[in-house]
């Protein structure tokens, strides 16, 4: 199984890339506020520092869940990011891996709030109820948009098949079909809620619920949770770019450097996606209230996702 080996090899790559992406995000965010901002490797410093810090488990916490959930969250989101990256490198896929990735990413964000609510802190509990409400809001349109794109590309639930479809038609899917363009828009709109950054960071709002689920975590546990969050950002922006905007004509030009050029271009593209969907909204919007965020998602992305699904079934 060469694919498994590649998958294992991608894990450290995901770790590095997601922290690097977070560093770039913070730098650009700072520059938009006319500050210098932290150095790009700042997330690495933070991660290592938290790893070697003391770990405190509050006496009120349900110990086993509290201890297990950060590792579970980090593991599932890193694997969730590694699968698409490994498939992109190995140029293969297994049936249903797209569903697996979406599931793992959701799992990671659920694990974070489960751990938070097991800490026994009332703010953790508020964070939990808010996160569940947010999940209902964004998860449905997100999944529908993925289903819509997979219908267009096959229909197939293999991640690499969708990329193959784009290579075959020599066009990115979002440029080729109206339904895919709508699905792409939905997906992009959902990213900032799925990763929980400012207009939708309601479950972990610092000034309202003091980081919500993260409140009682310290040291290595917190490092893992932060890693889970940044690799979710990385994974979702990579997915968004490769599923919808994979421009095959550009990548397949250079045959000599083929693999590396393709990968590099994909990463650059997903960086752009991240800057557009994570950094920019968190710079220019204020945090919404839970009711408003919920309404936002049910009024715009959900109808859009359903439209795109219908259009793709109709073959547009």
């Amino acid at each position: 199984m060469i694919a498994l080996e590649i998958l294992l090899a991608t894990l450290p790559l995901v770790f590095l890339l997601s922290l690097l992406f977070e560093g770039i995000d913070r730098k650009v965010h700072a520059r938009m506020q006319r500050r210098i901002g932290p150095p790009i490797i700042q997330p690495f410093y933070d991660f290592i520092k938290l790893l070697v810090k003391e770990n405190i488990v509050p006496t009120t916490a349900a110990r086993s869940i509290f201890n297990a959930s950060p590792s579970l969250a980090a593991a599932s989101s890193i694997v969730g990011a590694a699968i698409p990256l490994a498939n992109l490198i190995a140029r293969t896929g297994i049936i249903g891996d797209l569903i697996l990735v979406m599931y793992l990413l959701t799992m990671s964000s659920i694990m974070i709030v489960v751990g938070g609510s097991s800490s026994g802190n009332p703010y953790g509990a508020v964070g939990f109820s808010r996160k569940i409400m947010m999940l209902i809001g964004y998860e449905i349109p997100l999944l529908i948009s993925v289903v819509s794109i997979s219908i267009k590309a096959g229909p197939s639930l293999i991640y690499y098949d969708i990329i193959l479809a784009q290579i075959k038609s020599d066009k990115c899917l979002a440029c080729a079909y109206i339904s895919s363009a709508t699905a792409a828009l939905t997906f992009l709109l959902c990213i900032s809620a799925a990763v929980g950054v400012v207009p939708f960071d309601i479950p972990e709002a610092k000034t309202e619920v003091i980081h919500g689920p993260l409140i009682e975590y310290s040291g290595p546990q917190l490092a893992l949770l932060k890693l889970a969050k940044s690799s979710t950002i990385f994974s979702l922006s990579l997915l968004a770019f490769t599923l919808f905007f994979y421009f095959p004509t550009i990548y397949e030009l250079s045959i000599v450097l083929g693999e590396i050029a393709t990968l590099g271009a994909c990463l650059l593209g997903s960086l752009m996606v991240m800057l557009l969907t994570v950094t920019l909204p968190r710079t220019v919007f204020a945090r919404l209230k839970i009711g408003q965020a919920f309404k936002t998602y049910w009024f715009f992305p959900l109808p859009m996702a359903i439209t795109s699904l219908m259009l793709s079934v109709l073959g547009w």
Binding site: M32, Q33, R34, R35, V198, P199, D201, A205, K206, T207, R282, T283, V284, F285, A286, R287
Partner: peptide, 9 residues
């Protein structure tokens, strides 16, 4: 309200 940029300005 989580609007850091406005705070900075």
């Amino acid at each position: 309200i989580g609007f850091d940029t406005l705070f900075m300005y």
